[in-house]
């Protein structure tokens, strides 16, 4: 008997289907009982004979694979019919440029990036793993040094570290890749996590004011519908989706209007994913500028206004409108294209 629990979750989009191919080639050998746990519906569909859906620790449905469609399974996972995973995408970008990069680079992993991120825009970033997207986000947040020029809201700015990046109305906030180890203090409370970046907002003469802090925390928990028993619950005991909401809340408590979201929906439940996409579009409509990397291409296609594709540490192309499709993104990310 073989149990595979999210065995492919760390692989990028280019490895979609790797499990299905392995099974097609007759691995594991005939007669093995396989329990395949995955949040990738397509994968489950290709591999499994029967599908069982769990929600909140209980079986809610079981089907033979050929008898059920994706919509039904998603509805079972959510406990309700979900109209759509992706929200409406009304273009809200203005002419105002929030981040202008010229000749931007970092180390050996990123070079010659010319990119404009506009107010009210969700700009997707795509690329095969290791083609520079991680370095782009880190360098913008002041980690690891950067080359080239950065203009934030029209003014040249050198970002020397996260503390400086987060400060002020011209700040940038990051949702890091590794939620548990880089985004949160798992052993501290939801409250402490939410307010760690904004302690000065409720500090008077050197002393924090618990009432003002509680007000900020309660408002954010309500606004993002964070499911925590109390604000004192330890962040590490929340579900993945709620942990990610805490990170979003922490970011939104800062004055930063430029958000760097690095794979913000990785490994979280479908319901919370939908909420996060809606939140991203709402924030864009409010004038936030959002840079959004995802390892799931469908998310980029459905949520981002434009998608910048990185290949071989450089900007390969920017896709929008009809061209913003999984097929075009993969093409640009993998195949050498000639300038038109």
């Amino acid at each position: 008997m073989l149990i595979l629990d999210e065995a492919t979750s760390a692989l990028g989009p280019q490895r979609d289907g790797v499990a299905a191919r392995a099974f097609a080639r007759g691995w594991p050998k005939a007669g093995t009982l396989v329990i395949y746990i995955s949040h990738r519906l397509g994968e489950v569909r290709q591999i499994a004979d029967r599908i069982t859906v769990f929600r909140n620790g209980a079986t809610v449905a079981a089907y033979d694979t050929q008898d059920v469609d994706d919509e039904t399974i998603i509805a079972d996972m959510l406990g309700r019919r979900m109209d759509r995973l992706y929200p409406d995408r009304k273009p809200t970008a203005t002419e105002r440029v929030a981040v202008r990069l010229r000749g931007f680079g970092a180390g050996h992993r990123l070079a010659d990036i010319d990119l404009d991120l506009r107010e009210g825009e969700v700009l997707g970033v795509a690329g095969m793993q290791g083609h520079g997207q991680r370095e782009l986000f880190q360098a913008l947040f002041g980690i690891g040094g950067a080359r080239g020029t950065v203009e934030i809201w029209g003014k040249a700015k050198t970002i020397r570290g996260p503390r400086q990046a987060l400060t002020g109305r011209d700040g940038l906030a990051l949702v890091p890749e590794d939620r548990r180890n880089h985004g949160l203090l798992l052993s501290r409370s939801v409250r402490e996590n939410l307010t760690l970046s904004v302690i000065s907002r409720f500090t008077r003469v050197g002393l924090t004011d618990p009432k003002r802090e509680a007000k900020l925390v309660d408002e954010m928990i309500a606004a993002l519908k964070i499911k925590a028993g109390t604000p004192e619950q330890l962040a590490g005991t929340l579900s993945g989706g709620n942990q990610q909401k805490v990170i979003f809340g922490k970011m939104l408590l800062t004055e930063a209007r430029i958000l760097l979201l690095y794979d913000p929906t990785r490994g979280i439940d479908v319901g919370t994913k939908g909420e996060i996409f809606q939140l991203m579009r709402d924030l864009a409509a409010k004038g936030y500028a959002i840079l959004f990397y995802s390892s799931d291409l469908a998310e980029l296609v459905h949520v981002a206004d434009r998608v910048a594709v990185l290949r071989n540490r450089r900007l390969a192309t920017i896709l929008e409108g009809e061209d913003n499709s999984e097929r075009q993104i993969l093409r640009a990310a993998m195949i050498e294209t000639r300038a038109a």
Partner: peptide, 15 residues
């Protein structure tokens, strides 16, 4: 916070 998780604290703007 830094003692709990140095990396998270750094990314949260703690110098």
């Amino acid at each position: 916070a830094t003692g709990s998780n140095e990396r998270s604290a750094l990314l949260s703007g703690v110098s």
